[in-house]
């Protein structure tokens, strides 16, 4: 599998085929085929934009919710995870080691909206033993990208 190609796309999904081919020392046709394959096999799940919502007037709230579950006979946590990830508000669902079972990341437009979603949608699901909701106050770094204003290059214009 072409890990270098994946790293480049992870760094910037908007690189053109031409740029990717150049940087990989390959040609556009090959790269296009590889990307198709990676998409078809499900390695590439999509291309999104990283947005610093704190800079947008639109209210945007993120919460991390710790769920403790009772494992279901035969299905373990799978069925519950599937039920939970079906909600549009749910951004990510991870099975965790340690003190709780599922980590659910939820986004909404207000603290109250998210709190209500947890109370009305998540907590009542059969098998959910407890929830603990942690609101994100500020994102310093998200998806590997620093959310502060871009650092300027403090190198001199010339050096040997």
């Amino acid at each position: 599998m072409n890990v270098k190609l994946l790293s480049l796309l992870e760094e910037n999904a908007r690189y053109s085929l031409e740029e990717l081919a150049l940087m990989l020392g390959s040609d556009e046709k090959t790269v296009a085929c590889e990307i198709d394959e990676l998409r078809n096999s499900g390695v590439i799940r999509g291309y999104r934009t990283l947005i610093n919502w704190d800079k947008v007037d639109n209210a945007h709230v993120t919460a991390i919710i710790e769920l403790k579950l009772t494992p279901q006979p035969d299905a373990g946590f799978e069925d519950l995870a599937e039920k939970i990830m079906g909600f549009d508000h749910v951004e990510s669902v991870y099975l965790m080691s340690g003190g709780y079972d599922l980590c659910v990341i939820v986004t909404g437009q207000s603290f109250q909206g998210v709190a209500m979603f947890v109370a009305k949608r998540l907590a009542p699901i059969a098998g959910v033993v407890s929830t603990a909701t942690h609101f994100v106050l500020r994102k310093y770094k998200d998806n590997g990208v620093e959310m502060q204003d871009t650092e300027h290059d403090d190198r001199e214009s010339f050096s040997f």
């Binding site: 190198r155 001199e156 214009s157 050096s159």
Partner: peptide, 16 residues
Amino acid sequence: AEKMNNVISLGVGEPD
């Protein structure tokens, strides 16, 4: 270069 704005440099010999 020092007196100019908006200089885009490829002049350095050190990593970014």
